[in-house]
Measured scan of single mutants.
Amino acid sequence: GTVHVGDKTYHFPTPDAAKKFAQEIAKKLNLQVTVKNGTWQVH
């Protein structure tokens, strides 16, 4: 899975790992999470 946070991109071996990371970052930074075609965006 891929997660975009601002101008950074993180790659994870599984979709679940990407989802978990995106949700944790969003919670920590009080941001929104959207997913499109398996790519997570934190914004």
Rank of each mutant, 00 (worst) to 15 (best):
Gln23Phe: 15
Ile25Arg: 03
Gly38Gln: 06
Gln23Lys: 08
Ala17Gln: 12
Phe12Tyr: 02
Ile25Leu: 13
Glu24Gln: 12
Ile25Pro: 00
Ile25Val: 10
Gly6Glu: 06
Lys20Tyr: 09
Leu29Trp: 14
Ala17Glu: 13
Lys36His: 14
Gly1Ile: 07
Gly38Leu: 05
Trp40Tyr: 14
Gln32Ala: 11
His4Gly: 04
Gly1Thr: 12
Gln32Cys: 12
Pro13Trp: 06
His11Ser: 08
Leu31Glu: 03
Pro13Asp: 13
Lys28Asp: 06
Ala17Gly: 07
Leu29Ile: 03
Gly6Arg: 06
Asn37Pro: 03
Glu24Gly: 10
Gly6Ala: 06
Gln41Glu: 15
Gly38Tyr: 08
Gln23Tyr: 15
Ala26Tyr: 02
Lys19His: 09
Gly38Thr: 06
Thr9Arg: 06
Asn30Gly: 15
Leu29Met: 08
Gly6Lys: 06
Lys20Met: 11
Leu29Pro: 02
Asp16Glu: 14
Ala17Lys: 08
Thr9His: 06
His11Lys: 09
Gly38Ser: 06
Asp7Val: 11
Val35Arg: 08
Asn37Thr: 04
Thr14Glu: 05
Val3Arg: 01
Thr39Ser: 13
Asn30Trp: 04
Asp7Ala: 13
Gly38Asn: 14
Ala18Pro: 00
Ala26Leu: 03
Ala22Trp: 02
Val5Arg: 02
Thr2Ile: 13
Val33Trp: 06
Gln23Cys: 13
Ala17Leu: 13
Lys27Gly: 07
Asn30Met: 07
Leu29Tyr: 15
Pro15Gln: 15
Trp40Ile: 07
Thr9Asp: 05
Thr2His: 06
Lys36Thr: 13
Thr14Tyr: 05
Lys27Trp: 08
Asp7Asn: 14
Ala17Ser: 08
Lys19Ile: 06
Thr14Cys: 07
Asn37Val: 03
Val33Ser: 04
Thr14Val: 04
Val3Gly: 01
Phe21Ala: 03
Val3Pro: 01
Lys19Glu: 14
Thr34Gly: 04
Lys19Val: 05
Thr9Pro: 04
Asn37Cys: 07
Ile25Ser: 03
Lys20Pro: 00
Val33Thr: 05
Gly6Ser: 05
Val42Asn: 02
Thr14Trp: 04
Pro13Met: 09
Gln32Asn: 09
Ala22Thr: 02
Lys28Ala: 11
Asp7Met: 13
Pro13Arg: 13
Asp7Glu: 11
Asp7His: 14
Gly6Gln: 06
Pro13His: 09
Leu31Met: 15
Pro13Ala: 13
Phe21Arg: 01
Lys20Ser: 10
Asn30His: 09
Lys19Ser: 11
His11Asn: 08
Phe12Gly: 00
Val33Met: 07
Ala26Glu: 02
His11Glu: 06
Gln23Ile: 15
Lys36Trp: 12
Phe12Ile: 01
Lys27Glu: 10
Gln41Phe: 15
His4Val: 15
Gly38His: 10
Leu31Tyr: 07
Lys36Pro: 01
Pro13Ser: 13
His11Leu: 09
Asn37Ile: 04
Thr34Ile: 08
Thr39Trp: 06
Lys19Ala: 14
Val5Tyr: 10
His4Ile: 15
Ala22Phe: 01
Gly38Val: 04
Lys19Trp: 11
Gln32Arg: 12
Thr14Leu: 04
Gly1Asn: 13
Ala17Arg: 07
Asp16Phe: 09
His4Cys: 13
Ala26Ser: 06
Ala26Trp: 03
Phe21Asn: 00
Glu24Ala: 14
Pro13Ile: 07
Ala26Asp: 01
Val42Tyr: 02
Asn37Phe: 05
Phe21Gln: 00
Tyr10Lys: 01
Gly6Met: 12
Ala22Gly: 02
Ala22Leu: 02
Val5Ala: 04
Val3Ile: 02
Val5Asn: 02
Ala18Val: 01
Asn30Ala: 06
Glu24His: 13
Lys20Leu: 11
Glu24Asn: 11
Asp16Leu: 11
Asn30Ile: 03
Lys27Ser: 10
His43Ala: 11
Ala26Phe: 03
Pro15Phe: 13
Asp16Met: 12
Lys19Leu: 10
Val35Met: 14
His43Cys: 11
Ala22Arg: 01
Ile25Gly: 00
Ala17Pro: 01
Thr9Lys: 07
Thr39Pro: 02
Lys8Leu: 09
Ala22Asp: 00
Val42Gly: 02
Thr9Val: 14
Ala18Tyr: 01
Val42Thr: 04
Thr14Arg: 04
Val5Pro: 01
Thr34Pro: 01
Glu24Met: 15
Ile25Asp: 00
Thr2Lys: 10
Thr14Ala: 04
Leu29Ala: 05
Pro13Lys: 13
Ala17Asn: 04
Pro13Leu: 08
Tyr10Glu: 00
Asp16Thr: 09
Phe12His: 01
Gln23Ala: 09
Gln41Arg: 12
Asp16Tyr: 10
Lys27Leu: 12
Asp16Pro: 04
Pro13Gln: 11
Thr34Phe: 09
Asp7Ser: 14
Asp16Gln: 13
Glu24Leu: 13
Gly1Glu: 05
Gly6Ile: 08
Val33Leu: 11
Lys8Ile: 09
Thr2Asp: 06
His4Ser: 08
Lys20Glu: 11
Val35Glu: 15
Lys19Arg: 14
Gly38Lys: 05
Gln41Asp: 08
Leu31Pro: 00
Trp40Cys: 04
Thr2Tyr: 09
Lys28Arg: 14
His11Ala: 06
Asn30Asp: 07
Leu31Gly: 12
Pro13Gly: 09
His43Gly: 15
Val42Glu: 02
Tyr10Gln: 01
Gln32Ile: 14
Leu31Phe: 07
Pro13Cys: 14
Trp40Asn: 02
Pro13Asn: 11
Thr9Phe: 11
Asp16Gly: 11
Gln32His: 12
His11Arg: 09
Tyr10Pro: 00
Thr34Ser: 12
Thr39Val: 15
Val42Ser: 03
Ala18Ser: 02
Asn30Glu: 05
Gly38Arg: 05
Val5Leu: 10
Thr9Gln: 07
Asn30Gln: 08
Ala18Gln: 00
Thr34Glu: 07
Ala22Ser: 03
Leu29Asp: 04
Lys36Asp: 11
Gly1Ser: 11
Pro15Lys: 13
Val3His: 01
Gln41Cys: 14
Thr39Asn: 11
Val35Ile: 12
His43Phe: 14
Asp16Ile: 09
Lys20Val: 10
Gly6Pro: 01
Lys27Ala: 12
Thr2Leu: 09
Leu31Ser: 07
Phe12Met: 02
Lys8Glu: 07
Val5Phe: 14
Lys8Phe: 10
Gln32Tyr: 07
Tyr10Leu: 04
His11Pro: 03
Ile25Ala: 05
Gln32Leu: 11
Tyr10Ser: 00
Leu29Gly: 05
Ile25Tyr: 07
Thr9Tyr: 10
Lys28Cys: 09
Ala22Lys: 00
Trp40Glu: 02
Leu29Gln: 04
Val35Lys: 07
Tyr10Trp: 07
Ala22Val: 04
Gln32Asp: 07
Thr39His: 15
Gly1Phe: 15
Tyr10Val: 03
Lys28Trp: 07
Val5Gln: 02
Lys20Phe: 10
Thr2Arg: 10
Val42His: 02
Leu31Asn: 03
Val35Leu: 15
His11Trp: 13
Asp7Phe: 13
Lys19Gln: 13
Lys36Val: 15
Lys36Arg: 11
Asn37Asp: 15
Val35Tyr: 15
Leu29Thr: 04
Ala26His: 02
Leu29Glu: 04
Val3Met: 02
Ala18Thr: 01
Gly1Ala: 11
Gln41Asn: 11
Ala18Ile: 03
Ala22Asn: 00
Val35Phe: 15
Thr14Ile: 03
Gln23Val: 12
Lys19Pro: 00
Pro15Thr: 11
Lys20Gln: 12
Lys36Asn: 13
His43Glu: 10
Trp40Lys: 01
Gly6Cys: 08
Tyr10Thr: 01
Phe12Pro: 00
His4Phe: 12
His4Lys: 14
Val35Pro: 04
Thr9Gly: 03
Gln32Gly: 06
Asp7Lys: 14
His4Gln: 14
Val33Lys: 02
Gln32Met: 12
Phe21Ile: 02
Val42Leu: 07
Asp16Val: 08
Phe21Glu: 00
Lys8His: 10
Lys19Asn: 07
Gly6Tyr: 13
Ala22Tyr: 01
Gly1Gln: 10
Val35Ser: 09
Thr2Phe: 08
Thr39Phe: 10
Gln23Leu: 15
Thr2Gly: 03
Thr34Lys: 05
Ala18His: 00
Ala26Lys: 02
Gln23Arg: 08
Asn37Trp: 04
Lys28Val: 09
Pro15Glu: 12
Leu31Ile: 05
Lys27Gln: 11
Thr14His: 07
Pro15Leu: 13
His11Gly: 04
Lys36Tyr: 12
Gly38Cys: 06
Lys27Arg: 13
Pro15Tyr: 14
Leu29Arg: 04
Pro15Asp: 12
Val3Leu: 03
Thr39Gln: 14
Val33His: 03
His43Met: 13
Trp40Leu: 06
Asn30Val: 04
Pro15Gly: 09
Val33Cys: 08
Asn37Ser: 05
Asp16Ala: 13
His43Trp: 12
Glu24Tyr: 15
Thr34Ala: 06
Val42Phe: 05
Lys28Leu: 12
Lys8Gly: 04
Thr14Pro: 01
Lys27Pro: 01
Gly38Met: 05
His11Tyr: 13
Gly6Phe: 15
Lys28Pro: 03
Gly1Lys: 11
His11Ile: 09
Thr34Gln: 06
Val42Met: 04
Thr34Asn: 05
His11Met: 08
Lys20Arg: 12
Asn30Arg: 06
Tyr10Asp: 00
